[in-house]
């Protein structure tokens, strides 16, 4: 069983960070498009808890949680999304491209279905270099309609690469019900390629962490690729500001019942944890996010000359 308090803290950090982003976006302090994963925190926290520093993660447009769960520092994260020069990507990427290559976080991605082939290549690199590293690609249920998903699973299967594909199945493909977009379900899809599939309650962080640890152990033993399907809920719109006219308001009202953070808290209380300890964890997450935002506000704006000179590696003299 993964450390419940560590998982709880990570989910809190992601939740606090994203709710803060929603406010900053509404106030005009975060430009562009942001896609929040509020409600899906257990998937990012649970999967990344199973990984070591040698492993690689390719993410999606809804990638804040993956980046933070992979250990991206809040300061570099907020500065990036707030378009500051101290952002980990120098303010050139923003929300859809948060990346921390030193931590094997190969980037959020603005293109649906683009991450899995990149993770496939990372898995190929781990295999070729003879490390025991594994690669993970997160993807949404809507991405299953992209051709790259099929190419990736096929290649991972024929080469038995250490690749874990994690479907964050929230029922939505952008503004459409994914069951109106994709004819195949994941058990049938994975069976067609002979790849093991497990479905987990994506709002139960322990269940996700256990499934991920089991899958990663299999990958490290060289047993070939795995797919985890985590059923979860996207609490907010496709993007911040999405009026969600396509969505039944009833659905939104029911989602809090599945809150992965509330559920983890209740489970820990039931197991004897002190409420004060959990309250303190919540306060710490809030404080850490507030400090990172304050630092980002104080940081200089993104640097145009650095961007202009950052397209290619510096020429060797």
């Amino acid at each position: 069983m993964s450390d419940p308090i560590a998982l709880f803290r990570m989910m809190l950090t992601i939740r606090e960070a994203e709710l803060a982003l929603a406010r900053l976006f509404a106030d005009g302090e975060v430009p562009g498009f942001i896609h929040l994963s509020v409600g899906q925190e257990a998937v990012a926290a649970g999967v990344c808890a199973a990984l070591g520093p040698q492993d690689s993660v390719a993410s999606t447009h809804r990638g804040h949680g993956h980046a933070l769960a992979r250990g991206m520092a809040l300061e570099g994260f907020f500065a990036e999304v707030m378009a500051k020069s101290t952002g980990l990507c120098g303010g050139r990427g923003g929300s859809m491209h948060v990346a921390d290559l030193k931590r094997g976080m190969l980037g959020a991605n603005g293109i649906v279905g683009a991450g899995p082939p990149i993770a496939l290549g990372a898995a190929l690199a781990h295999r070729t270099r003879g490390t025991d590293g594994v690669a993970v690609a997160f993807f949404g249920d809507g991405a299953l309609a992209e051709g790259t998903m099929h190419e990736t699973l096929n290649m991972a299967a024929i080469w038995r690469l250490p690749l874990l594909l994690v479907c964050e199945n929230n029922g939505w493909a952008e503004f459409s019900r994914s069951d109106t977009q994709v004819a195949v379900n994941l058990p049938a899809w994975t069976a067609a390629y002979g790849v093991p599939h497990v479905e987990v309650d994506g709002n139960d962080v322990q269940a996700v962490a256990t499934a991920a640890a089991d899958a990663v152990a299999g990958l490290r033993r060289g047993e070939g690729p795995r797919v985890i399907e985590a059923r979860t809920h996207r609490w907010r719109g496709h993007y911040e500001g999405d009026p969600q006219r396509y969505r039944d308001p009833e659905e939104a009202s029911r989602m809090a019942e599945h809150d992965p953070i509330a559920r983890a808290r209740a489970a820990m209380i039931a197991a004897g944890a002190a409420a004060a300890t959990l309250d303190a964890a919540e306060a710490e997450a809030r404080d850490a996010v507030a400090a990172a935002i304050a630092a980002a506000r104080a940081a200089p704006p993104a640097d145009w000359m650095a961007a202009l000179n950052g397209v290619y590696a510096p020429a060797e003299v």
Partner: peptide, 10 residues
């Protein structure tokens, strides 16, 4: 795509 991921991974 795999070439990109492999190149980002050493």
């Amino acid at each position: 795509g795999a070439a990109v991921g492999a190149a980002l991974s050493g």
